[in-house]
Design a protein around this nucleic acid. Sequence first.
DNA 1: GGGCCCGCAGGG
DNA 2: CCCTGCGGGCCC
Length: 331
Amino acid sequence: MPSISSYEQLRLENIKKNRELLMQLGLDKPIFEPTEKVVKKPTATKKRKGPDTPTSENAEPDTKAQRVSPSQSTPESGVRRSSRNVGKTVNYKREIVKESPIPVAYSSGVKVAENEGPMGREDGPRRCDPKTYGSIPGIAVGTWWPTRQGCSADAIHAPWVGGISGGKQGAYSVALSGGYDDDVDLGYAFTYTGSGGRDLKGTKTAPKNLRTAPQSSDQSFENNASFNKMLQRSCETKKPVRVVRGFKCKSEYAPSEGYRYDGLYRVERAWMEKGMNAKGYLVCKFAFKRLPNQPPLPVRASLDSMGNSARETLEEDEENPEEVEDEPKEE
DNA sequence: GGGCCCGCAGGG
DNA sequence: CCCTGCGGGCCC
């Protein structure tokens, strides 16, 4: 058999290019190399900058009601879990980042102080309008939901299925669910693939009843309900975009279960490239960068079987005071 | 595990 | 109304 498939080859090429672009965009975080051995530097395990004041509200005009009442987050046995996760064994000890106030995930039946954090509702009426730019009052960065329905109920990301939600001035929110193999997630920056170019087939009796399908044509910034155009607009308007990471996202920044609100990002670039599909159809790509003055991202221990903890020198505080980055005022 | 069906929210 | 869409459950 060939030493490396063409698919894998393209994937590596795309990943390399995407990562280089992210670096050009000023990413100053350690880079996770999934395909190469992690060179462990003699890490100074000591943490500089101990007290990290958690009062960094994320550049939000209205900071009251930021607290999520913890009394609601004691579900114990009352929380329904999707059957997919039943019986799944997850070692949460490996995922906990002590420095982070954000939970990486909850576990069914396992809920300890270390991974406890804000938890959203699973359903119910909306209290806020998801069609807004920027943060949602009362929903802290790091809030976690078992399913996408909860993200929608709490107005963080409205669609139950779609990855992009937006309006005339750009996207309100996106969901990272690992649907594209060549997306690069560096935590504080990532590349994202647009939607469209899929032929939503179905069965003969129920045509178009599928929600996803393989790529069958080029994506574009114009067609496809203009989801991609929304993100292109975000790149122009620089409106903040809410980002949700899902468990399917193959990233050390993704929760192992459910979906987590990871705060506000900004679209820095929009371009097209050959995507990860057999025919080499073009896809729309976007580079996101996280806005400063937000709680640090949780990082789970490296998932590779070699046991490389690829992440030692994480916490060096970034947030250079330049660019105070208030979200552009809502017009 | 994979296939299929399903409801839903949103934008035009 | 029409269409889409990085879900989720159920059945096999």
